[in-house]
Structure formats: C-alpha cells, structure tokens
Design a protein around this nucleic acid. Structure first.
Lengths: 228, 228
DNA sequence: ATTGATTATGCTGCATACAGAATACTTGCC
DNA sequence: GGCAAGTATTCTGTATGCAGCATAATCAAT
C-alpha cells in the first residue's frame, strides 16, 4: 500500500493534510535552492551565523538542515571547520550520470509496463509544454520542465524508492546541467532526444526507451563536460 | 565518556589521518546499529530525552543525527510529534530490492570490466571466509561477511556514487534480511547463489553475473517475504 | 459506563549560552 | 621584507532553557 508508516498518507488521500512546517525543513528547501542557483557557490564555506541571520533563523535549525544536505551529498562537513558546498569533479560527474542513467532506464522500463495511459499522457503534456518554452527560448522554464519530465518518467514506474534515489542524484547535478545546456546546438540536441523518449514511452517500447535514455544521458555528459 | 578516536587497524592501514569525531557522528553510528539490531524497533517512537540520557549526550547532537537518519530513510520525522523508526511495508521492500538489484547489477558489470585481479581475489577471500562461517553455522559472522561481499562487489566498480546509493538502501533492509535468512534451506540457497556470483566475477562474465544477481535478489525477496 | 470537555504532563522545536578549536592578526626578530 | 611565535577573534560543537503543541489524565454529565 502506502510507504512508511502510512498514517499520514492515508489521511491525505481524501483531505488536504495540514502540513506543519518546521524551520529546518524550510531552511533545507531554501538552502537547496541557494546551492542550485549558485548563491552558495561550490567550494564556498557556509558560515552558520551569517546564513542564519540572512534567513532570520537561529543556528539550531540551520545546522539540522545542513546535516540533511550533507546526507544528500550537496555539502560536505569538516569537523570543527564547518560545511562547504560540495564541488564535483569530472569523475564525480561521470559516476553520478552513470548511476542516474541506470535509474532512469529502470524507471522507464517499469513505466512502460505499469504506467497508466493517463500518466503517460500527462508526461506528453509536460513535453509539449517544454517544447513551447523551447520555441520561445525561455531557458529557465524549459529547464524546469525538462527536469520535471525526467522525474515524471521515473515516477511513472510507481517505485517510490527509485524516485527518491533519482531525486537526490538529480539534485546534485542540477546546477551543472543547467549551465551545460547553454548554446543552441547543445540545446537542440537535448530537445531531439527528449522527443524520442516520449515517443518510445507512448509506444511502451521499453527496449527503445532504454536505448534513448542511454543516448540522452551519455550526451548529457558531453554537454556538461566543459563546464567542469 | 567518548570512545577513542580511531581503531588501531585503521591507523595501521595507511597514513594516520587525524579524524576528529563529532558527537552527532558517533550518535549516528550508534543509532544505526540500534535500529539494525532491533533495539529500536520499527514503529517505535524515539524519545530524545531518553535516548540522549542513555547515550550520555544532550539533545542537540542527537537531533542532528536523527535528521541524517531521516534523510537515509531509516526513521520518519513527524513535526511536533517526533521521530519514529521506519516500518517498511511489503511494497517498500519490493521497491528497495528492485532498485538494489539494478544497482548491484550495474556494479557487477562495471566490476567485471574495471576491477583489478587483486580486488577480485580479495572478494573471493571474503567469500571463502563466509563459507567457513557457514560451515560452523555462525550466523552473525556469516551475515556480516555476506553484506561485506555485496558491498565489495559494488565497490569494485570504482563508482563512489554507486557505492553510496547501494549503502543507504542496503542499510534499510539489513535487519529484515538478517531475520529473513533464518532456516537452513533458505540459508543454503543463498550460499549457492553467492558461490555462483563469485565464479562469474572471477571469469569477468558480466552477462552471467548480472543474471546471478537477478536471481539472488529475487530469491532474497522470497526469503524475506514472510518476515513482513 | 461511556462520552466529552478540561486540566496536567511530557516532549518537541527553537533560541541562546558557553567552551574549545581554527583562523586571522599582531608583534618581534632575523 | 619575510618568517615565526604568540595573541585576539571568529566560528563551530554542545548543553541548556523556554515556549508551544500533543497526548495522557481527570472529572462531569448524560
């Protein structure tokens, strides 16, 4: 049924759950964004007092958020020295993309079997919306939809754990990927690959989808290469 | 009150890097063990004051450790209510094993290509040691070596990210897996599959290894099934 | 007796205080 | 001028205090 303990998710089925926000959760979200946006640059040390003041929060919830970020691999904690925004080497990048590729392939294959027609149609809708943003050259919105599609395909597998793992890895390279897609040629290539992905998914052709994802992720590595 | 900085074996391994241990790190490790051992049972609420006193630590580092455990998926945090040890449903279990299978397959394939002969020999040594523990029916030591072998195969791929993801997922089902292997028939089955894995790895037969891992993980699901 | 309301207790979430380490700075010496 | 030692400052790591929510306990009323 539902994952975890399930009491909350069952309740949220019918009624919108009243979500009590904690500060560390809020801070966590904000800091993730700051890292992805580059406000917190890779290699930069995180001064707890400073960031805390900036967010209007004491050090306690901030530190708790940092621990989570560390567990997600977005920051690195050096005892008695503090946390620094993690800097990814080209090897890290290759490793991440390799795993990400396999996760998406698994997600895609499973989605071909399990996903409902509605779910696939929704992904197609995302794709169309993305293409529209491509037409008008709105890179930020395009990018967001792009990420959403990748997530949606994995989500369509119905495997929560897979989604979770995919999400953390995707977060790690989000920034580099965004920068990497600069340049019209690269952009065009990525768009073409996406089109093929959606088509394979609609045909529920797991074999083809797997191959396209392989191609797409390997291309991504090339596109991102010179950003490092 | 705090234990030593590092073990002797670590120090003699390579150059002794002075690693400053923080309390939240220490607590994190301890709590992981407590969850796996069952001292903290699934579904049980974690009382910060209680556990803190038990470990001789204030609530601050404890809470930080809990945040990490939550990020690892071992506990679940309910705002204003506290953290509870996560209880996995059969669906969760299936999802975890599905992803784990794919990660290990990727690790195995890559290891067949990249791993040095020495690395593979070391894994064979682990396997032989495990078989010895099987012979004397030392289930705990057997289990530890079993886990170590799976980790070692993934590690042999040289992909750190893969190792990390594999590690977190492995931790989630560690306890269930341990309980699941009870009974001589199940145990014998697992041992046979392991033997085949090592042989495939030594031949660097990626195809065969992938298939054995598939078999092994699917069998694991069956072995663990009735524990839920 | 059961239900509902009300009080009481316990625990979490956050802020703050303090000790010790790490870094920056100053000063003296060559 | 450059280097070294010693001092000052900053920042992290941990403990503690306090407010608010959640739950348990108590009691009243039907």
């Amino acid at each position: 049924m539902t994952s975890g303990v399930g009491t909350l998710s069952e309740a949220s089925e019918a009624y919108p759950r009243i979500q009590r926000r904690t500060l560390h959760d809020e801070v966590l979200e904000r800091m993730r964004d700051m890292i992805i946006e580059g406000t917190l640059a890779p290699g930069q040390r995180i001064n707890e007092g400073l960031i805390g003041a900036q967010l209007g929060v004491s050090r306690t919830p901030l530190r708790e958020a940092i621990k989570t970020l560390a567990s997600e691999g977005l920051v690195e904690i050096q005892p008695a020295k503090g946390a620094i925004v993690r800097k990814f080497s080209s090897t890290d990048m290759r490793n991440i993309l390799e795993v990400l590729k396999n996760l998406e392939q698994l997600g895609g294959r499973t989605a071909c079997e399990n996903a409902s027609d509605e779910t696939i149609a929704a992904i197609r809708a995302l794709h169309d919306a993305m293409m529209e943003q491509y037409r008008v050259r709105n890179r930020l919105e395009y990018f967001k939809l792009n990420q959403a599609i990748h997530s949606a395909i994995v989500a369509a597998s119905g495997n929560d754990v897979l989604m979770e793992m995919h999400g953390t890895l995707q977060a790690r390279i989000k920034r580099l990927r965004f920068i990497g897609n600069e340049g019209p040629d690269k952009w065009a290539g990525a768009v073409a690959e996406h089109e093929a992905m959606i088509e394979a998914l609609e045909k529920r052709d797991a074999e083809a989808l797997t191959e396209v994802i392989r191609l797409h992720m390997d291309s991504t590595r090339l596109r991102v290469w010179d950003v490092l």
